[in-house]
Design a protein around this nucleic acid. Structure first.
Lengths: 341, 341
DNA sequence: TTGAAAGCGCTAACAG
DNA sequence: CTGTTAGCGCTTTCAA
């Protein structure tokens, strides 16, 4: 028993009130595809106003084909980075007249696929996805004829938007080197993760190319605050404690900050930190974090355009990242141009 | 020109492949309303498998009435608290077989109403909303016969879920008093905001009931990191600096932490802090924040149940909050039972 | 410029 | 137990 829900006003009601046919109502609502005499148009408009008619998107989708809905699947919306991404995607989608369906895969491939399945049943027009199972997801979507764009890990032939993880890691590490630190460790992401690997390679490369004597210490950790905390504790425990640590994500850096605090190590004086993501939290942290900034808005805009543009050739974007220099790297202290160690 | 999207497989295709009628296919897909012979059922199942049939939710919604979709409108998903809420809502909705449509009102009433309009066009079954214009929103939804539950500000006769803002503020302030602080200031929320006012009243009440000599210092600020930063700077600037500050939200507390750091004031040694929300960020902050914890999961579960339960009498929940004691309040130091100042 | 009517894919009477 | 059929509300030919 529905509250006070008056029976739905349909196009037929409007047509009746305006003394025209349903077709004409449709023409004025959609501005086509047939022209309508100005007088008639006014009568229809008045009838719409008077009846409180609201077009039914469901019926419209059934006949028209498009639901004007986009899906967004992220591992966890409570993760600051994904939350910012979601905001940007929703914003871009809205500007394009689309609404977004949101779901969390919880980092689980099975869940992600199940979510995709329900999205497909709802006939979304396209999906933006940070995938745990890109190949399978792509096959499903391809079979359904649904547009998609992968963020991060992606199958080779599908549209994807990524950032220069390698370059960003190199820049961050170089910056640390420039401060004169020699023992620069890294808290990396999960093993066998495309994104995490690229960041690790960048860090490694920077160190090697500058002639570091030995390998820097490295630990694999999930991209979480906790991962950063645990990884930080591990790295800080050794007898030759690192002078600087590059964390693979802002959340890890925040955990690292806590680990340092717990160990009574002052940042950046006794330990410098650089990180990756550029989420808002990196600016709020104390000390503020020097971080590699991902172009979130640009990613979202590109993704939505790719899903809504009439003509959208496959996209393989690798966006540039920028290093945002703040306090955690020790920039309050003099900085030297990086030279060979 | 769609990619490789094979033409959609419909119920008719399945019926043909199984040698039955569409009705029977519908019966087995939905497990009713008519029984189907086991043999037939197997043939249909096989046909579904073989054709790769996927029921069309749009058509189903058109005839059935329900879209199995819930809307969620928050001011800003990038705000940690709303992000956690969104995760909980999505989780609960998924468990109930629903999908969620997400949108950000950006704290603007006009935007919120426009968003609601598009949700209504898409015929969502119900909406969870943190509203900037509760009365108008409620009227719109009532007229459309759409279920809703307001979080925070709500019209008197609509279902709502809130927390004991007053009680939480009292508890936090009392705790600060227990540490022996006498000058306890507050960074409040926006003026004329229900939630913000209740928190302010709680702080005020705790102070008054304990016989504080004079009014504590108070500043209005938005519920943002920046608001907390600015408010903190204001409060810390006076000649008789407060010994403790109660911030109306975690985000503000995080900004306050930065303000204190900028002023070279050590927390909790020179300034104690307590806050409200209990978002994950409060635990990650350095020092970790003593905060009033909102029962996010419970709120989300209740909200979804309210929107999906067959029988859902109006709900006016005011949930209990708990004080989570961490480092920022100075609990490393001895604590005394609150007594009159 | 307008209207009649054929579906879009599915569910649920209503007959067998 | 199974099949036929009438819509759900809307868009879009096709005729007028």
């Amino acid at each position: 028993m529905r509250g006070g829900g008056v029976a739905r006003v349909t196009q037929a009601d409007v047509a009746r009130a305006a003394g025209t046919s349903m077709a004409v109502v449709s023409y004025v609502v959609n501005g086509g595809p047939r022209p309508v005499a100005e007088g008639t148009r006014q009568r229809v408009l008045a009838a719409i106003e008077q009846t409180g008619y609201r077009p039914d998107g469901v019926a419209r989708a059934l006949v028209g084909g498009s639901t004007m809905t986009l899906g967004l699947i992220v591992p966890d919306i409570a993760n600051e980075f994904f939350a910012e991404l979601a905001r940007a995607v929703e914003h871009a989608a809205r500007a394009a007249g689309r609404t977004v369906l949101l779901a969390n895969s919880e980092g689980d491939a099975q869940t992600e696929l199940a979510l995709l399945e329900t999205f497909l049943e709802r006939r979304i027009d396209g999906v933006v996805i940070i995938s745990q199972a890109p190949i399978t997801a792509a096959r499903m979507l391809e079979r359904a004829g649904t547009r998609r764009v992968f963020l991060g890990a992606a199958p080779p032939d599908d549209s994807s938007i990524g950032v220069d993880n390698f370059g960003g890691a190199v820049a961050a590490t170089m910056h640390l080197v420039g401060h004169g630190y020699e023992r620069i460790a890294m808290i990396g992401g999960p093993d066998l993760d495309e994104v995490a690997d690229a960041r690790r390679d960048g860090w490694q490369h920077a160190l090697t190319s500058l002639g570091a004597a030995e390998e820097g210490a490295f630990v694999h950790q999930p991209f979480t605050v906790d991962g950063g905390y645990v990884g930080g504790l591990q790295l800080l425990a050794g007898d030759t404690r690192p002078q600087a640590i590059f964390a693979a994500s802002d959340r890890q850096a925040i955990g690292l900050l806590r680990a340092a605090a717990d160990e009574g190590i002052s940042v950046p004086d006794e330990l410098a930190i650089a990180t990756f993501d550029g989420s808002a939290a990196s600016a709020y942290a104390v000390p503020s974090l020097t971080t590699v900034q991902q172009p979130i808005t640009q990613m979202a805009d590109l993704a939505v355009r790719q899903l809504t543009a009439h003509d959208a050739p496959p996209l393989h974007a690798v966006l540039e990242v920028g290093l945002v220099i703040r306090r955690s790297c020790g920039c309050s202290r003099p900085w030297l141009e990086p030279r060979r160690l």
